[in-house]
Amino acid sequence: MQQTMSQPATNAPRTGAPGADRAFQWLTLLMALSVFALIALIGYELMRGARLSLHHFGWRFLVNSDWDPVNDIYGALPAIFGTLASSVIALLLAVPLGIGTAIYLTELAPLWLRQPLIMFIELLAAVPSVILGFWGMSVLVPWLRTLLFPWLQKLFGFLPLFQGPAGSGFSLLAAGIILAIMIVPIITSVSREILRSVPGLQREAAYALGGTRWEVTRIAVLSYAKKGLFGAVILGLGRALGETMAVMMVIGNSPQIVLKLFAPASTMASVIANEFNETPPAGLYPSALFELGLVLLGVTVVVNIFAQLLLKTFAGPSVKPQP
């Protein structure tokens, strides 16, 4: 095993058993390799659980729009639709807010305000999903039902997206808003790291040309950081796709494909969380839920790897996806 740093003392006499060194190295190697084992284990267990459903439905599972436990027919399309729709809404809300906040924090905000704001945003990231979900269902959803939905309908009622009964408030839009709240901290903190890694010379050159603060930010910083910011967004998407509790508590959990903001929907994660405890121990029903988990895992892993590649090629190892 080649060592990462220079070791001037490899030939020096050593105290203790020579075997101990090797044993320690192997032990740490084993523990480090556990991440591969865990990934393999997750994939294997999901495949094993989903075997029956994979065999029975094949690729039709992905395009079938019926989720019907009574007749034992399962299609993932409604859940895939709900997952994508709620995540897209979340991104539409969270990306401008997150990147705007990151720009404010690194370029424009007065210095004394930066640290407290950063701390607040990090605390927001620490709020457990179930608490945000509870807040969502008891505060946000009633507010949406009584205030925002009627107002939006008055303004944009001519668009199909905003039509339909405002209903209970448990809806795609509620899920999108809660998800946006959950992913905005990660988009902000990763974007902030990206913006901070833009070399100072870039900025100074733009200032020297007589730019205002905003012009410097736009010309020197944002155009330089574009790729990294895109990585931050994709990382936020990965989080949004897999979020479970908060979404499940506000989305209304109805396996339908209706592209209306005020209509309830379901996501892959929410269907699993909702129905897994009610399934019989064996059979097609639990197997279909495992397959749903497999699809969810596939999507989030692909999105995450894409985000990591973007971030790592942007700035080397100094920018970490994990805040």
């Binding site: 991440v35 267990e45 659980g49 990965g238 979020e243 897994f276 988990g293 969810l296 999105v303």
Partner: peptide, 14 residues
């Protein structure tokens, strides 16, 4: 880092 992105519900069923 990939493992960090695995949805928590997936961990649950695994």
């Amino acid at each position: 880092d990939t493992l960090n992105g695995v949805p928590s519900i997936t961990w649950g069923i695994v």
